[in-house]
């Protein structure tokens, strides 16, 4: 069934004999689901599992299904799952527009791609920053470029790894609206991990609480 949904079926992430977390969750398209819990319980590990870049020291069971397709044997670069971290991780050796062009899906002529990048820059109010060094941008500007770079890759799902925790409080609100707004507009499922209750409230989707401490998790 092709419904754009992200399904996590009986996922169990372990390190050696320790089970870090178990999750069973459906995230319908256009919904923002939140996984809440203190740092160090393996929330980020779950995201790297979904993205296909799980560190070999961990092991995982269960199925990840996106839009009806089991991702088990799909390499990370073919999954079309975007990810945003608390750091913007703009590539320091590229200009702002090179960063965006790197995200843009392949295809089109050079001129078309150039137009798309310009259009994207205009959308996030950074038209004058085409050739700027990403390191010279403000925190909010970097966050917007990072979001736009991910959106240009045309993701079918979006993962958010504590994406707003480094921002000032007023900026945080605006970024939440921007990110959630874009995700809903594109009608893709979003999975966010955070330890901030306000993130979960703003998302307005299902919330799953994982272990308040390590002992709970080991059970």
């Amino acid at each position: 069934m092709r419904d754009g949904m992200l399904e996590l079926r009986d996922i169990r992430v372990s390190k050696g004999d320790d089970t870090l977390m178990t999750v069973d969750l459906n995230v319908p398209a256009g919904t923002i689901a939140t996984i809440m819990g203190p740092s160090g319980v393996g929330k980020s590990t779950l995201l790297s599992l979904i993205g296909g870049t799980l560190d070999p020291v961990f092991s995982a069971k269960g199925d990840i299904i996106l839009d009806g397709v089991n991702l088990g044997s799909v390499p990370p670069e073919k999954r079309q799952i975007g990810i945003l971290f608390q750091d913007e991780l703009l590539f320091p050796h590229m200009t702002v527009s090179q960063n965006l062009a790197f995200g843009l899906r392949q295809g089109g002529t050079a001129a078309q791609r150039c137009d798309q990048v310009r259009h994207a820059l205009a959308q996030i109010g950074l038209s004058d920053f085409e050739r700027a060094d990403p390191a010279t941008l403000s925190g909010g500007q970097k966050a917007r470029v990072s979001l736009m770079r991910t959106l240009l890759s045309d993701p079918r799902a979006l993962l958010l790894d504590e994406p707003f925790s480094r921002l000032d409080s007023d900026l945080r609100d605006r970024m939440r609206q921007l990110v959630f707004g874009h995700a809903k507009e594109r009608n893709i499922p979003v999975l966010m991990v955070t330890h901030d209750k306000q993130d979960a409230d703003a998302a307005g989707g299902p919330v799953i609480n994982v272990g308040s401490d390590r002992q709970n998790l080991a059970e």
Partner: peptide, 13 residues
């Protein structure tokens, strides 16, 4: 995480 971002953007090894 740079690698993870780049892979998420659809880029191969």
């Amino acid at each position: 995480r740079y690698d993870r971002v780049a892979a998420a953007l659809g880029r191969s090894y």
